[in-house]
Design a protein around this nucleic acid. Structure first.
Ligand SMILES: [Mn+2]
Ligand SMILES: [Mn+2]
Ligand SMILES: [Zn+2]
Ligand SMILES: [Zn+2]
Lengths: 146, 146
DNA sequence: CATCAATTAAGAATAAATCTTATCTGAGCC
DNA sequence: GGCTCAGATAAGATTTATTCTTAATTGATG
């Protein structure tokens, strides 16, 4: 995906703009996030990367993720699980969450994005984000059942 | 609200149906949840109740909430915050979350509830719940700003 | 090449939530 | 009204995710 290259470019720009050094820890962690669709936790990212980067520390993963979230490069995903999950996908999309295996799948929904909120809601305050969360059971889990 | 009485009745039924004793800890905790719209955490509930119930323990609040969630009487709310928040409101509704103060406000959205999911989503698995989460800044926080 | 931000190691510290064990209380049944 | 046992309490330990501390090392960048 050429998208990813652009995203990495934007990432490098943002780091530079904030005077942050381009360490390969940062680059690898961001890269892993960009190329993953599983919304990994800090630990998952760590396991994914420690093979290639034997000196990587879990602490760095946490610290780096926190930095990325601050910069708006990465989002923490809202889940019911106990460990935080992250994504580098910044463009508008929504989530389907499998309550059995914890899998998080992205989807888009244009007509929802274009829809107007009820008036009652507009009186509550200033809305910045509008997202759908689905809960259910994914196909793999449905198959694995019988 | 007469709604609340009905909800308490349903709560008592469910407890009885599962052979659970109607302790006043359980009743008070459920009552507090039903009459609150703030989606309190276990600690918040504990603070709310300890005045009236000086012997209540935080452990009991946690244990009781877990029981209620298991019974489907109470839902854990999806948030980005570190502590779990709960509600006894079971009927279909959605949430507006103030990123500044953490306030969670309910709202309903009939046309959304009636809407069809995109086809691509139906291929992902069996969807059980479909909810909207808004993020933004609530009116109180907007006022308090200047 | 020098500088200093960032990483690492190793361990301690937090915070939320859960568990343990023993003791007490009170809800539900006769 | 009295029994019985589920459930509450106290007090403390434990677990899990996450963050912090300190000191030594690395390596990105000017
Ligand atoms: Mn996503
Ligand atoms: Mn709610
Ligand atoms: Zn699944
Ligand atoms: Zn607010």
């Amino acid at each position: 995906m050429d998208d990813h290259k652009q995203q990495i470019a934007h990432f490098e720009q943002t780091c530079r703009a904030h005077g942050l050094k381009m360490t390969h820890q940062r680059l690898e962690i961001f890269h892993a996030l960009v190329h993953s669709s599983e919304h990994p936790s800090a630990e998952t990212l760590y396991s994914m990367l420690e093979k290639r980067m034997p000196t990587l520390s879990l602490d760095t993963v946490y610290r780096t993720l926190a930095t990325f979230v601050d910069l708006g490069l990465v989002k923490r995903v809202e889940t019911l699980g106990s460990k935080a999950r992250f994504e580098a996908k910044i463009d508008q999309h929504h989530h389907f969450f499998c309550d059995r295996c914890g899998q998080l799948t992205d989807f888009t929904w244009q007509s929802f994005d274009a829809s107007q909120l009820p008036e009652t809601v507009q009186e509550l305050g200033r809305v910045r984000d509008k997202n759908v969360i689905l809960h259910g059971v994914c196909n793999q889990c449905l198959k694995a059942k019988e």
